[in-house]
Simulated assay, not measured.
Amino acid sequence: MPYVVSGILLAVAIIFPLAVPMYAHADPHLFSFPFFFWYQMLWVPICAILIGICYKLMTTEDKRRRAVLQDQAGRRGRHDAGGEAK
């Protein structure tokens, strides 16, 4: 599930700034900047936040998977050390 969420967040961060016809107009102005420019600049921190969320999701999932693998390896080691037949 973290992979799907990260993929969606990254797609949003890529697609919305690239959808130029959606924001290719001058109005409304913000501090005398046309909409075209301030909309693009608005996406800079938004993309940074979305990428940060993706990074956190992926590192958390990586830690979880590593813990599961170590747990499985630990169980196999204890099973083998117990002298039981394979």
Results as ranks from 00 to 15, higher is better:
residue 1 M to F: 09
residue 2 P to A: 02
residue 4 V to K: 12
residue 5 V to S: 03
residue 5 V to Q: 01
residue 5 V to W: 03
residue 6 S to C: 05
residue 6 S to G: 10
residue 7 G to L: 06
residue 7 G to S: 05
residue 8 I to D: 08
residue 8 I to W: 10
residue 8 I to H: 07
residue 10 L to T: 01
residue 10 L to P: 00
residue 11 A to L: 08
residue 15 I to S: 07
residue 15 I to H: 12
residue 15 I to C: 04
residue 16 F to Q: 09
residue 16 F to P: 03
residue 17 P to S: 05
residue 17 P to G: 00
residue 17 P to M: 03
residue 18 L to G: 02
residue 18 L to S: 12
residue 19 A to Y: 06
residue 21 P to D: 06
residue 21 P to T: 06
residue 21 P to L: 07
residue 21 P to S: 13
residue 23 Y to A: 04
residue 23 Y to P: 02
residue 23 Y to F: 10
residue 24 A to N: 14
residue 24 A to D: 11
residue 24 A to C: 07
residue 26 A to M: 02
residue 27 D to S: 11
residue 27 D to P: 03
residue 27 D to W: 05
residue 27 D to N: 05
residue 28 P to A: 04
residue 29 H to N: 06
residue 30 L to E: 06
residue 30 L to C: 12
residue 30 L to A: 13
residue 32 S to R: 13
residue 32 S to D: 14
residue 33 F to Q: 13
residue 34 P to S: 07
residue 35 F to D: 00
residue 35 F to E: 01
residue 36 F to S: 10
residue 37 F to D: 07
residue 38 W to I: 01
residue 38 W to Y: 09
residue 38 W to K: 06
residue 39 Y to D: 02
residue 40 Q to Y: 15
residue 40 Q to R: 14
residue 41 M to V: 15
residue 43 W to C: 05
residue 44 V to C: 12
residue 44 V to F: 11
residue 44 V to K: 12
residue 44 V to S: 15
residue 45 P to W: 05
residue 46 I to T: 10
residue 46 I to S: 09
residue 47 C to F: 13
residue 47 C to V: 14
residue 48 A to C: 13
residue 49 I to Y: 08
residue 49 I to N: 04
residue 49 I to A: 07
residue 51 I to G: 03
residue 52 G to R: 08
residue 53 I to M: 00
residue 53 I to Y: 02
residue 55 Y to D: 04
residue 56 K to E: 04
residue 56 K to N: 09
residue 56 K to C: 08
residue 57 L to H: 00
residue 57 L to Y: 01
residue 57 L to W: 08
residue 58 M to T: 06
residue 58 M to R: 04
residue 59 T to H: 05
residue 59 T to Y: 03
residue 62 D to N: 14
residue 63 K to W: 02
residue 64 R to D: 08
residue 64 R to A: 04
residue 64 R to C: 06
residue 65 R to D: 01
residue 65 R to G: 02
residue 65 R to M: 02
residue 66 R to K: 14
residue 67 A to M: 01
residue 68 V to Q: 11
residue 69 L to W: 04
residue 69 L to Q: 09
residue 71 D to K: 09
residue 71 D to M: 10
residue 71 D to A: 06
residue 72 Q to W: 13
residue 72 Q to L: 15
residue 73 A to D: 09
residue 75 R to V: 11
residue 75 R to F: 06
residue 76 R to S: 13
residue 76 R to Y: 12
residue 76 R to L: 15
residue 76 R to C: 14
residue 77 G to I: 03
residue 78 R to I: 00
residue 78 R to F: 02
residue 80 D to G: 05
residue 80 D to V: 15
residue 81 A to E: 14
residue 82 G to R: 08
residue 82 G to F: 02
residue 83 G to S: 07
residue 86 K to A: 14
residue 86 K to D: 13
residue 86 K to N: 15
